[in-house]
Amino acid sequence: MTDPTLALEIKKLIVEALALEDIAPEEIETSAPLFVEGLGLDSIDALELAMALEEKYGVTVGDDPDENQKIFFSVESLMGFVQKGS
């Protein structure tokens, strides 16, 4: 869960997949919320991020809405998801 290389990789993926401007991957806090507060991502971003994660790590989003909310909460939770799934 504390692999800094993976954290940076996921941050880069977020910045690139969502074409975020004015933010460098390093500036994304690993444990801060990605959606609404924090980075302020939205529902289209959620779709695109899910696709990018699948493409890069071969992990697919499951069918439980509560679980998905937990997975997409932060870089940290995404790391757990990627590590478990790949």
Binding site: A46, G62, D63
Partner: peptide
């Protein structure tokens, strides 16, 4: 249902179904 992924297992339950969705979700 917020994610298109959440739909699939629900649709897979037995029985006939209809889907009314938005283009972004259908694309996904």
């Amino acid at each position: 249902l917020l994610h298109a992924e959440e739909l699939l297992p629900r649709l897979a339950e037995p029985g006939a179904s209809v889907l009314a969705a938005t283009p972004a979700h259908l694309r996904r």
